[in-house]
Structure formats: C-alpha cells, structure tokens
C-alpha cells in the first residue's frame, strides 16, 4: 500500500494495537474466570471452553465466507467468547454457549461489518439472544461445590436468600450466579489493572455503578446489594467499556455510564427482569452515536456560534 494519508496534528504516537488491547482484556478477565472454574468446578470450564472455541470457529468461518481478511489473531473473537461464557451459568447445556457465540460473532459482529462496525457489544447481543431463547437454562444458577447447604436460585438479586448473604461473601464471590460475575474482588482487580494500563476509562464503570447505587438508595433499596449481587460489576468493567460501542469523549462516557445506571435501575425496579444489566448496556450502545454527537469537545480556539 503506497497511499499516504495527510492528517492534522497532533500526531499522537501509541503502541496500542488491537492485539495488545485484547491481550490485556483477556489477562484482566483471567482472575474472574479462574475463580469461576474453581468455585463451580469443571462444568464452568467446559462452558467457557465451548463459548470461546465456538466464537473462534464462527469468526474463522464467517470471515472466510465473507472474504474478509483473516482476523483470528486480533483476539477480539476470543474476548467475545470469553465474555459471553463468563455471563452464563456454569453447567448450562452445551448448545447454550455454542449458539450464543455463533449469534454474537455471525449476526451481531460480522453481518454488520466485523470488529469496529458492530453497533452493539457482540457478547451482550449473544447473551440477550440466549436469554430470550432459553429463559430457563439461562436463569438456573448452580450452587458451588463448596456450598453444601445452599439452594439453587434464579439469581441472588431476586431471592430472599440474598438477605442471608454477607457482604464479604458477596465481594469474594462465595455465592451463586453466572461464572464470571460472582467474584467482585477478581473483577475489580482486572478493572484496576485495565485502568492503570489505560485500556479502559474509569468514567464509564464509575458513572454506571454510582448512578445505580444512588438511585437504589434513594428509592429505599440497598445500594450495596444492587452493586454486589448480580452482574453489574462484570458489565460495568468489561462490557460497557467496549471501545466500539461506547462514546469516545470524556463527558460522553459519563453520560453513557449514567444512562446505563438509570436504565438498569428502571429494569430492576419496574421491569420483569431481576437483572437487566444486559439490556441496559445494549440500549446505551445504540444511543452512543447520539451521545457522541452532543458531547463533542470544543476545538481549541473555537468560538461559540451564537455568542
């Protein structure tokens, strides 16, 4: 390629590449994944392997069919598969992770043009597909093999046994839930790592979780429950911060996070789902081009038109 493109300064140099970012995200997800596998046993590992393998295979076949350049090495398909697997209950039937990954890669990602052109987060689109398709399998959370006396429940968010759970247990992940969402400590470690490496912006998760906690507290709910039980932490750190589907401008990111918090709170307070993280993020994904348009930073030296 000998095309030269001329662009205006500043010319920011960065050694960030898609591979490097994806490698970091996978690294940051590892603590949560490892904890999930230890906590729920081999069935969790099987679910994760199935979702990752089918995401990679789907990407490979789809790229081949659409005659696009080989893209497995950028790691984005692996991240999608891993993220999707982490939102599933351990030991769900084999077709759940497989179909979810296939939907995420083929429909949500490649049909719209591949990485960078998907208008919603593929992993969450896959999860929404699964939630609508297999409502029972998707909400039957197993208990850990270390919790002999625990009851299997829909989600700790909706059940009365949330009351008997201590915050320390919830923070450490000694509870039932989907594979990757239980251990908040591991998620937080991954999140802090990504913020320090400047892979993700702290504004989105902080704005989201703060809004959710604040609204829950204002309406007489338990703010800590809202953040610690369920998938909001996983969603806030790893799903909402997806580059492709979230705004770029700093204030846009704050608005984006607040929006997710409001929608998530509304779904939990007034909707039929006890969880709602998936739909909240998906809806804000769709709104993010609009947010982007209204939060464009002022150019240096720009004068207001109607001043």
């Amino acid at each position: 390629m000998s095309t030269m493109s001329v662009s205006l300064s500043p010319h920011v140099r960065s050694d960030n590449s898609t591979q490097k970012i994806m490698r970091n995200v996978i690294f940051a997800l590892l603590p949560a994944a490892v904890f999930g596998v230890v906590w729920f046993g081999l069935s969790a590992l099987l679910t994760l392997v199935l979702s990752c393998a089918s995401a990679l295979l789907a990407e490979f076949l789809m790229v081949k069919a659409l005659k696009r350049p080989f893209s497995l090495n950028d790691g984005s398909a692996l991240v999608t598969g891993l993220l999707l697997g982490l939102t599933l209950p351990a030991g769900c039937p084999w077709y759940v992770p497989v179909l979810g990954s296939v939907f995420a890669i083929c429909i949500a990602k490649q049909v719209f043009g591949g990485l960078g052109d998907n208008f919603v987060n593929p992993a969450l689109a896959g999860r929404a597909f699964l939630l609508a398709s297999f409502p029972v399998a998707m909400t039957s959370y197993p208990t850990s093999r270390f919790m002999a006396d625990a009851v299997s429940s829909a989600t700790p968010l909706s059940s009365e046994f949330a009351g008997s759970l201590s915050y320390a247990d919830a923070f450490l992940g000694l509870m039932s839930g989907s594979i990757g969402e239980v251990c908040k400590l591991a998620l937080l470690l991954g999140g802090i790592y990504l913020v320090i490496r400047q892979i993700i912006d702290w504004r989105i998760p902080v704005a989201y979780l703060a809004t959710l906690a604040l609204l829950t507290a204002l309406t007489g709910g338990n703010a800590l429950d809202a953040v610690l039980l369920g998938g909001s932490m996983l969603g806030a750190i790893f799903m909402a911060t997806d580059y492709v589907t979230s705004p770029v401008s700093p204030w846009g990111r704050v608005v984006f996070g607040i929006g997710i918090g409001i929608i998530n709170f509304a779904i939990r307070a007034f909707g039929a789902y006890p969880e709602g993280v998936t739909y909240a993020i998906l809806l804000m994904n769709i709104a993010s081009p609009l947010i982007e348009r209204f939060t464009r930073p002022k150019k240096y030296g720009e004068v207001k038109k109607n001043a």
């Binding site: 039937p93 077709y95 179909l99 429909i107 597909f129 609508a132 398709s133 297999f134 409502p135 399998a137």
Partner: peptide
C-alpha cells in the same frame, strides 16, 4: 430438541 424460543418471538421474525 430445545426450541430456540427467540425464533418464535418478534426478534426472530426480523432475523
């Protein structure tokens, strides 16, 4: 056969 419920729902129609 586990029915993929989505296909009988509205989004399945569009898909």
């Amino acid at each position: 056969y586990p029915g993929v419920l989505l296909f009988v729902l509205a989004p399945g129609g569009y898909l």
